[in-house]
């Protein structure tokens, strides 16, 4: 977890190479996972297809839990991809940490607020777009004044808090997990000889397992909140 980040300027935009490499790896892992499991799709499912269908049912269940009616079907793919992406991204840093020089090139991309806030931004943007599409611009704008006009500033403020909490929650959890993992690792390497490995190993082991759990829960929470935000925008006020 080196403090300096490897950056590249291209077309006036700043790129963080570590993030980008991690994201590409995450995307590749997700793609390969889905690709290999979906090779023999049959009416009577077996093996990989069962796993994929179970995952699809799982994410569809999350979406249908908050979005009612026919709208749920349209967000199934987004929820599925989001869940797999965040899940893999959360676990990536627990297993692989590539450090060259001062720079860490491969880590959990979700341990960077830029990544989580971008995902959060995509969700919020999708929610607003779906709201406008569903209720029309007038109904969408009107929803800000519900239940009373007094709530207008609160409602506007809520959009920003939703966006920030969604992204920062994920970032905080994963960043803290990686940070502590690094600290425990340095406890072993920086400690007094071989003895430090003896007590550092079970702590590292436990914390790694707990981080896997947290990563899964956070992926679930992110997708759940995504569907909640979308449903808030899509559902017409009674």
């Amino acid at each position: 977890m080196g403090d300096p980040v490897p950056t590249v300027k291209f077309l006036g935009l700043t790129f963080n190479i570590a993030n980008d490499i991690s994201i590409v790896i995450t995307c590749l892992i997700v793609f390969l996972f889905v690709f290999l499991l979906s090779r023999h799709i049959a009416l009577k499912p077996k093996g990989g297809q069962n796993v994929l269908e179970w995952l699809i049912e799982f994410t569809n269940g999350i979406v249908k839990g908050s979005i009612k009616g026919n709208d749920a079907g349209r967000f199934g793919l987004y929820a599925f991809t989001l869940f797999l992406f965040i899940f893999v991204a959360n676990q990536l840093g627990l297993f692989i940490h590539v450090q060259v020089g001062d720079y860490t090139y491969v880590k959990s991309p979700t341990a960077d607020p830029i990544v989580t806030l971008t995902l959060s931004f995509m969700t919020v943007a999708l929610a607003h777009a779906a709201g406008v599409q569903k209720q029309g611009m007038k109904g969408y704008l009107k929803s800000y004044t519900s239940p009373f006009l007094v709530f207008l500033p609160i409602n506007i403020f809520e959009q920003f808090t939703d966006f920030l909490t969604l992204g920062l929650r994920l970032f905080g959890n994963i960043f803290a997990g990686e940070m502590l993992l690094g600290k425990v690792a340095s406890l072993a390497t920086g400690g007094s000889g071989w003895f430090s490995y003896v007590y550092a190993f079970p702590i590292e082991f436990l914390w790694q397992g707990f981080s896997v759990f947290i990563g899964s829960v956070q992926a679930f929470v992110f997708v759940t909140l995504t569907s909640v935000y979308i449903s808030q925008k899509v559902s017409t006020e009674e």
Binding site: T7, L11, L13, N19, V24, T118
Partner: peptide, 11 residues
């Protein structure tokens, strides 16, 4: 890091 954001969104 606008570049990152674009990169994430596009990927």
């Amino acid at each position: 890091y606008l570049g990152d954001m674009l990169f994430i969104a596009i990927s």
